[in-house]
Every structure is written in structure tokens, then in C-alpha cells.
Amino acid sequence: NRMYLVCPMNTSAHVDPQKSGHEVWEEFSHSFTPAVREVVEFAKKIPGFRDLSQPDQVSLLKAGTFEVLVVRFASLFDVKDRTVTFLGGKKYSVDTLRAMGAGDLLNSMFDFSEKLINLGLSEEEMSLFTAVVLVSADRSGIENVNSVEALQETLIRALRSLITKNHPNESAIFTKLLLKLPDLRSLNNMHSEQLLAFKVH
């Protein structure tokens, strides 16, 4: 009954069988913590984010960190080669990950990454899109919905303006980007279910 960690936020999918469940969890946590801190640092730089109440900043980050990481690490999923590169640099084929127990979430991540990368966004566009992903007024636990909504609208307007300026002949890109938001929610839900299975295991 070997155990594998098929999330690319790990350094490797292989788990040392000598390690206790707690040690495995600690190692996993150690892997993703720097990435989470980077998301927080990114959020701090979003104009207006620090003006939100502190509980709302925490709620947005709690709810949206996974989705931001999905956008940020879309390039780990190589659609052409059907491989996933883990943060430690190890590359696994889809077949290998499937044999390790990866399920529907893996396919969904590939679909999402392919569609996002195919939009060919610049770094600036991707960054603004990521800010829109994070600042969503309908996350659970938001106290001051109006403030978050106002910031969200400002960010969406800025994204639309930037996309329109950079892609004058591709007006559908902005719509396609907004349609990625429910896709990310869906991935987030699937991921939460996987986490539950992992914790139960």
C-alpha cells in the first residue's frame, strides 16, 4: 500500500514509507508554504487590497489561494507532452500519475491550463487576471461585501481596458478570461474533495 502525493506542489510524488503520516504532512506543508507566502505578497501589491478590512483580506486569501496557484503554475502542466512537473523539478507523465491514483482533477487541470496558456497573455495581463481571481466579493465570510465588490469592479475594468488595448482584434479574450472564473471555482471544489480524501487517508 504505497502512498503517493500527486499534487505538483510537492517536491516529489513519492512518499518515504518510513515516514509517519505527520511527517509526510509536515513535508507537504513545507513544500507549499513558500508559494502561499508569494500569493500573500502578490495580494499586498494589488492597489486597494490593503485598504480592505483585515478579516476580509484573510477570507479572500483563504478562499482564493488555490485558484491563484492554479493560474500561476499552469505552466507546470505540459499539455503537448502530457506531463506534470513538480516543484522539486521531477516530471511525471499523466499515465504515471494516474497509476499513482490521480483522478478527474488531473484532467481538469490540464484542460484549464491548456485553455489559459492558449490565450497567450502577457505577464501584466496574467497578473491583473490573477488579481481579479483573488478579489471576488462572493467568497464566503466576507464582511464588507461592498468594499470588495468595488475593488473587484475596478480590477475587472482595468483588465478589460488592458486586454482591449493589447488585443484590439480579439475581443473574445476578455470574455474567455471571465469564463475562467467559474472553471477555477470548480477546480477549487474538486481540490477540496481531494484534500478531504487525503486527510481521511
Binding site: T33, V36, R37, L61, L195
Partner: peptide, 27 residues
């Protein structure tokens, strides 16, 4: 399992990073 972020320990990491807790940062 309504709060996966808390279960992962994310909330603690997020709070510390938001407060700029330098002691918690990796070297």
C-alpha cells in the same frame, strides 16, 4: 469539510504573511 484552508494550515500562513512576520520567513 467546509474550511479546507484552515485544515491545511493555510490561514495561519496567510495571517503571518499578512502581518509581515519576518521570523516565519525562510532564510
Amino acid at each position: 469539510f467546509s474550511d479546507p484552508a484552515s485544515n491545511l494550515g493555510l490561514e495561519d500562513i496567510i495571517r503571518k504573511a499578512l502581518m509581515g512576520n519576518l521570523e516565519e520567513r525562510p532564510e
